[in-house]
């Protein structure tokens, strides 16, 4: 084993372990990434001709996006449940809740896929307008984040998770906690994307 300290136990004077601090800094930089894109959205909206964003925005499918919002919120709840089950050493429950989280994430992607393809069928592409450009860029980047998160979740849902649990339940709990923080962040991004793209 490596000799690096504070991988799991907390450092007394900072009250943190390494991965928890690491993921918060990662999230800070992600906030700056999406923050940059959100400011670009605001900037472009002001630069665009009157009513342009409203016109193109009305082409989006609000019910589908609402459904997706609910699905992501559910997945955040099940994510917490799976972490809590793990802390209570209930591995089967952990696995079930994590599975539900993964299903919600996959469901989100399916809906997004239907939305994208129906846009393409109607001849709407990123180049169609500035609004569509920023819509595809923002949601596309968000989809990539969901994909990345799902890969990690599936990794811990697979037998690897079981093996890690048998070796050290706290290690798996720590990994799930950190992944969960990321997952909540990705949800939160969607909570911002949904109103500015679909509703405003």
């Amino acid at each position: 084993m490596s000799s690096i300290p504070y991988i799991l136990e907390e450092r007394p004077d900072t009250g943190l372990n390494n991965s928890r601090l690491g993921i918060w800094i990662f999230i800070a930089s992600e906030i700056m990434l999406f923050g940059g894109l959100f400011s670009a959205y605001v900037f472009l909206r002001f630069a665009a001709p009157e009513g342009d964003f409203d016109y193109w925005g009305s082409k989006l499918n609000v019910p589908m996006a609402t459904f997706n919002t609910l699905m992501l919120i559910t997945s955040s709840v099940t994510m917490i449940m799976s972490w809590a089950s793990l802390r209570m050493k209930q591995f089967d429950k952990y696995k079930m809740y994590l599975g539900l989280t993964i299903l919600c994430g996959l469901g989100f992607l399916v809906v997004k896929y239907i939305e994208y393809t129906s846009k393409f069928h109607h001849g709407i592409f990123p180049s169609s307008s500035t609004f569509m450009g920023i819509y595809f860029t923002l949601t596309g980047l968000h989809v990539l984040h969901i994909l990345g998160g799902l890969l990690v979740l599936i990794y811990f849902w697979s037998p690897v998770g079981k093996r890690m649990y048998d070796e050290d339940p706290n290690l798996l709990a720590n990994r799930i906690e950190v992944t969960g923080l990321y997952w909540h962040f990705v949800d939160l991004v969607w909570i911002f994307l949904f109103p500015i793209l679909y509703l405003l």
Binding site: A28, S29, A40
Partner: peptide, 14 residues
């Protein structure tokens, strides 16, 4: 670096 680079990453994506 952590706070200033991401907006350039955003700009590069755009």
């Amino acid at each position: 670096l952590v706070l200033a680079f991401p907006p350039l990453e955003a700009a590069s994506i755009l």
